[in-house]
Design a protein around this nucleic acid. Structure first.
Length: 268
DNA sequence: GTTCTAGAAC
DNA sequence: GTTCTAGAAC
């Protein structure tokens, strides 16, 4: 199987349990979550819709092909991906705490122009620190302000028709048109010419907007950004632990004192 | 999607 | 001379 169609092969499996655990994280009746083979962050998974009737491989080829399906069918697929991505994020957060002692951001979204066949939802931690992050287009494809990365939440919002003259006053036909308007608009925009230039943007840190000259300096910068966050967050966790310890100690040993104090203040 | 590598950039 | 990128090939 070619590297470009490997995901479709996974999504076609009638029994995902036959996939090794080096590839598969979890699955449900609707989705299958795999480890990204070339993770661009410390945590990076792909949530795939499984190919089960009435869905076909060509419906699920990419976001464009899915949006061309029946609107409600497409929305259901995205909502199932959303539901199962929540579970994946919870697993990532558990692992963050276990391995690193703190939690940090997780992004959930699609590439506007994917390079592999079969719709895949990226769920990745926002450190962007990984040996597989090697090229400008890798970085820019996840940059939250370039627009190439489409957060799932935004895509789901495309389904909510906006208020307008037509949706409130129009005929039935006009209303149906209006309901599909945003989706149709997005399908028309999901072409490479719209998105390819975003991958060629200069290398700008998504946190502090500093521009970096090349990939090696960007990677070093991202590493210090994440190291700084780790330091801050671990200190925060430690402060909270101390506060909790103090409260616990007070509750365990100081109850009588507090009761006594309370009595003191209550009755003059 | 990655690997390989020529030639640009330093 | 070495580092880095970008395009062809897979």
């Amino acid at each position: 199987m070619s590297a470009l169609t490997v995901l479709r092969g996974y999504a076609q499996k009638s029994d995902p349990n036959t996939l090794p655990l080096s590839i598969r994280l979890t699955h449900t009746t609707d989705t299958l979550t795999v480890f990204d083979a070339y993770p661009k962050s410390i945590f990076h998974f792909l949530v795939l819709p499984r190919i089960v009737p009435p869905l076909t491989a060509s419906n699920l080829s990419n976001l464009r092909s899915l949006l061309k399906c029946d609107k409600n069918l497409a929305r259901k697929v995205l909502e199932k991906l959303n539901r199962d991505a929540q579970g994946v994020r919870a697993m990532i957060e558990d692992e963050m705490v276990k391995r690193y002692g703190f939690k940090w951001g997780i992004w959930t979204g699609f590439h506007a122009i994917p390079s592999m066949e079969h719709l895949h939802l990226h769920v990745l931690s926002n450190d962007l620190c990984s040996p597989a992050m090697k090229k400008k287009k890798h970085y820019n494809s996840f940059h939250p302000s370039h627009g190439f990365f489409l957060p799932l939440e935004d895509v789901l919002n495309w389904f909510d028709a906006h208020e307008s003259y037509f949706s409130t006053q129009g005929t039935g036909q006009e209303r149906r048109f209006e309901e599909n308007f945003l989706i149709t608009l997005q399908i028309s925009r999901l072409w490479p010419s719209q998105y390819d230039p975003m991958l060629k943007e200069p290398l700008v840190c998504w946190r502090c907007y500093k521009e970096l000259k090349n990939i090696p300096t960007l990677k070093a910068h991202l590493q210090t950004e994440w190291d700084d966050e780790a330091k801050r967050e671990k200190a925060r966790v430690e402060r909270k632990r101390k506060r909790d310890d103090e409260v616990n100690a007070e509750n365990a040993s100081g109850d009588t004192n507090r009761v006594a104090k309370k009595r003191d203040t209550a009755s003059p």
